[in-house]
C-alpha cells in the first residue's frame, strides 16, 4: 500500500467526441499529501475540471493511474470508499442541490453513510456552522441567493467529513464579501480539521492561501511551486493570459530593485505598512 495521499501517475485523458469541449489532459504526474492546500490555476479549457472529475472516478483516465490512499479510482470495488474520502463541490450549485429543505440537503450524504440520526444531526449542525448558515437550516435551497446556495453545497460535502475536499470554482457567483468568507472557511477547515483542500480557480487571487500552486495549460502542468514562486514569474504567466495578483507584482518590482520582502506579507496594505515602518 502507498499509504495516505493522492497520486497521479502518468495520467492522460482524451475525449473521443471531437465536438466535446471538455479539455484533455496529458502526462500528469502529481502527488498530493494529506493536509496540503493545493491551488490549481488555469484558463477555461486548460483541463482543471477534467482533473477534478478524474480524482473521484466521475471520469476514467485514458492512460495512467490515480490512487487515493493507495486505492485505484479505476477499481469498482473501492470507488465507494474513495468517494467517501474525497468530496467535490462543483461550480454551479444548482446542479447539485436536490432537497426541499437545507437541513435535508446536508443530511443526505451522512444518512447514506448509514450513520445514526444523532450523528447525522451533529454533522449537519457542524457543517452549517462552518459556512455560517445556521439561520437558514429550515429554508428552501432554491429560494436562496446564488452565494448562499454555494455555501449550502459546500456544507453538504463537508458533512460527509471527507479527508480530501475538491472545489471547482466555488466562488464564481459570489460577491467579494461571500467570496472572502468561503476562502476563510477553507483556510479554517484545512488548519483546524486537517482536511486536504484542492481548490480550482481561474482567478489567481483565490489561490493565495495554497501551500502549493499548480498551473495547468492546454492539459499540461505548466508551472508548479508556492504561490510566491509561481506569481514571481510574470513573463511565463502572461504568456498564457494570466496575471499575478497586484501584491506579487509589487513584491517582484521591489525585489528587482534590491528590496527583499519577507514571506508572510499577504496583502497590499500590509506591504505598504512594512515599507513605511522601515
Amino acid at each position: 500500500m502507498n499509504g495516505h495521499g493522492i497520486q497521479l501517475i502518468n495520467v492522460g485523458k482524451e475525449f473521443k467526441n471531437p465536438d466535446s469541449y471538455k479539455a484533455a489532459l496529458t502526462n500528469i504526474n502529481l502527488t498530493i499529501h494529506e493536509g496540503e492546500y493545493i491551488g490549481i490555476l488555469g484558463l477555461n479549457q486548460s483541463g482543471k475540471s477534467t482533473l477534478a472529475r478524474l480524482l473521484n472516478g466521475l471520469l476514467k483516465p485514458s492512460l495512467g493511474r490515480i490512487l487515493v490512499n493507495g486505492m485505484d479510482v479505476d477499481s469498482s470495488e473501492q470507488i465507494r470508499e474513495i468517494r467517501q474520502l474525497l468530496g467535490i463541490v462543483f461550480q454551479n450549485p444548482d446542479n447539485q442541490l436536490i432537497c426541499p429543505v437545507v437541513e435535508e440537503e446536508i443530511a443526505f450524504g451522512p444518512e447514506n453513510l448509514g450513520l445514526s440520526p444523532s450523528e447525522v444531526n451533529k454533522r449537519v449542525s457542524w457543517a452549517l456552522e462552518i459556512v455560517g448558515m445556521q439561520d437558514m437550516r429550515y429554508h428552501a435551497p432554491h429560494l436562496l441567493s446564488g452565494g448562499q446556495k454555494q455555501k449550502v453545497a459546500l456544507a453538504s460535502v463537508l458533512a460527509m467529513e471527507p479527508s480530501y475536499l475538491v472545489l471547482d470554482e466555488p466562488t464564481s457567483m459570489l460577491d467579494p464579501v461571500s467570496r472572502w468568507e468561503i476562502l476563510e472557511h477553507l483556510r479554517k477547515i484545512n488548519k483546524e480539521n486537517h482536511i486536504t483542500i484542492i481548490l480550482i480557480s481561474h482567478n489567481p487571487e483565490d489561490l493565495l492561501d495554497a501551500n502549493r500552486l499548480i498551473v495547468l495549460h492546454e492539459g499540461f502542468i505548466y508551472m508548479q511551486g508556492t504561490p510566491r514562486e509561481v506569481y514571481a514569474d510574470m513573463e511565463k504567466l502572461t504568456a498564457i493570459g494570466l496575471k499575478p495578483p497586484g501584491l506579487y507584482q509589487l513584491i517582484q518590482q521591489l525585489e528587482e530593485e534590491g528590496y527583499g520582502i519577507d514571506d508572510n506579507t499577504s496583502t497590499i496594505p500590509q506591504l505598504v505598512e512594512k515599507i513605511c515602518q522601515k
Partner: peptide, 14 residues
C-alpha cells in the same frame, strides 16, 4: 467592503 483595484489599494494604504 468594496474591493479597490490593486494600484488604488497602494494609494489608500500610503
Amino acid at each position: 467592503r468594496l474591493e479597490l483595484p490593486d494600484y488604488l489599494q497602494v494609494a489608500y494604504a500610503l
